[in-house]
């Protein structure tokens, strides 16, 4: 089952878990099942059935909007990350500025 990593502010609505494993063959499917398991999450993630504009979903560090969006295929050992854009940010893995990272998590910038 793919794993969805939950950002700190949403953990209170997801049983205080930092990661949840859900069934699903696409990113949209997996997120929908997450919201079914934790109904309080839905209003934070979706508006009128669509992902809210400041919510970014990363599949293994890649923004799904640059893949196939909600139709992006996810495999058994994939990891999805829910990241509020704050300011549209996604970071380049091979960053020309060579910035330091801590705690492991990183995302890819376009």
């Amino acid at each position: 089952m793919p794993t969805i990593r939950i950002p700190t502010p949403l953990r209170q609505y997801a049983g205080d878990q930092s990661a949840v494993s859900v069934e699903g063959h696409t990113a949209g499917d997996a997120l929908d099942r997450l919201a079914q398991s934790y109904p309080e999450l839905r209003q934070h993630l979706f508006e009128n059935g669509k992902l809210r504009s400041f919510v970014n979903i990363y599949l293994n560090e890649e923004d799904i909007r640059y893949l196939d969006g909600p139709e992006t295929e996810v495999k058994e050992d994939d990891t999805l990350m829910i990241i509020p854009s704050i300011a549209g940010g996604c970071l380049l893995e091979d960053d020309p500025w060579n910035v330091k990272r801590v705690n492991g998590a990183s995302i890819t910038r376009r």
Binding site: R5, I6, P7, T8, P9, S18, M81, I83, P84, I86, G89, L91, W97, V99, K100, R101, V102, N103, G104, A105, S106, I107
Partner: peptide, 13 residues
Amino acid sequence: ELVLTDPLEGSDG
């Protein structure tokens, strides 16, 4: 000089 922290942790991280 920048140290980037875990995006999942937000500004508290």
